[in-house]
Write a protein that binds this DNA or RNA. Sequence first.
DNA 1: ATTCATTCGATACAAACTGAAACGAGACCT
DNA 2: AGGTCTCGTTTCAGTTTGTATCGAATGAAT
Lengths: 220, 220
Amino acid sequence: MLVDVLSDNGFTASPVSSAIEMDAVLGRENVDLVVLDIMLPGEDGLSICRRLRAGSAIPIIMVTARGEDIDRIIGLEIGADDYVPKPFNSRELVARIRALLRRVRGGRDIAQVRARPLAFVGWRIDPATRQLHDPEGVRIAMTSAELDLLLAFCRNPGRVLSREQLLDMVHGGLAGPIERSIDVHVSRIRQKIEPDPGDPTLIRTVRLGGYVFTPTVEEA
Amino acid sequence: MLVDVLSDNGFTASPVSSAIEMDAVLGRENVDLVVLDIMLPGEDGLSICRRLRAGSAIPIIMVTARGEDIDRIIGLEIGADDYVPKPFNSRELVARIRALLRRVRGGRDIAQVRARPLAFVGWRIDPATRQLHDPEGVRIAMTSAELDLLLAFCRNPGRVLSREQLLDMVHGGLAGPIERSIDVHVSRIRQKIEPDPGDPTLIRTVRLGGYVFTPTVEEA
DNA sequence: ATTCATTCGATACAAACTGAAACGAGACCT
DNA sequence: AGGTCTCGTTTCAGTTTGTATCGAATGAAT
């Protein structure tokens, strides 16, 4: 029944009835999330959960008939990401799966959200086309690194971002340039977007801290 | 009671009893997670949740007395990250908070709630843009350390703050300068904001105590 | 009232940090 | 293969910041 509900909601479900089967599926398919019943023949659900969690960060939702608090607590503390008591409403399970996927791959979901153009004080920046337009609608040429950095700022307005954080966001974590290169890019961006690059207001420096992007950013 | 439980578990909790209070706390403190009761005077819990979610990705756990599935579903679909039915075991709530924080931090992409600007005797100071404006609206240049210190004062008006406390607030706890450096910064701030820096009224010295910020401060 | 020890305010200075320009290696296009 | 563009590094000047110093103010004791 569960498989049907999930299929109806656009998921691909691979039902398994034992820990051994599960391992097999996990081994050959790309699994985004595990729905785990505590009651399974063979290895116990809690034990499976602990084992999975030890080896990966795969999202786990536990299902159990036993409604006692203590089970939920143990489940959550062992590392399950969510818990659904049985009997459950199938819409609730789907909602929880969606919520968990949304959270866990924050990366990808936000990526969709992030694909939308953003706007600040008249400027528009579009991650999809990788273009920047000034308040008059004129396109301002931006290099790749500049645009990435500006995007990182736009996605974290009003927050002090350290050079390390910015480097992470722009350079995707992989080791590369030294932190001071951020300064250079900030300087170059300022030349292009600040009304008075000598007295910047959009990207402010926080000494010993990094930089803050000050305007409010909204989707456009 | 909740506050006690959370404190016992190492969290810092700021209880509020209305949406307005909540906004105030969110504006001035660094909030990691919101526990939201559906039943609140004034704005409805679901509405608050929707509003919060519209502006930020702050983790939200909803608490409600109504145990019906439909409420949970709505709550989750609106964007709450988790749901706890009342009456709840306090250990379960703590476990859920831990689990949620763990997940969210793992994502390491928490969009913070934007800090609100503050005002005193005509002056405006905006933590988000890190700018200070005098009563005529003219921007007064402030260095990072000066602005941080003035912000610390604005967030604790009418209280005598020791140099040690101020150093903590400005320098973020990490060991650094000696206490007397606060004197120098206070002096520099006075030069910029006091009508008569020789006879300061806004930041008053408390001998053997520290300094007090005297004006009333409100959100602007 | 005077003296004395602290404490605080203001200035000066050195160290640390940031901004901007210059440079060169590498990527990309033709 | 040549040229242009981009980007990380380096360098140097300007700003910011912490500390030191000295004089003024405070408060207690004589």
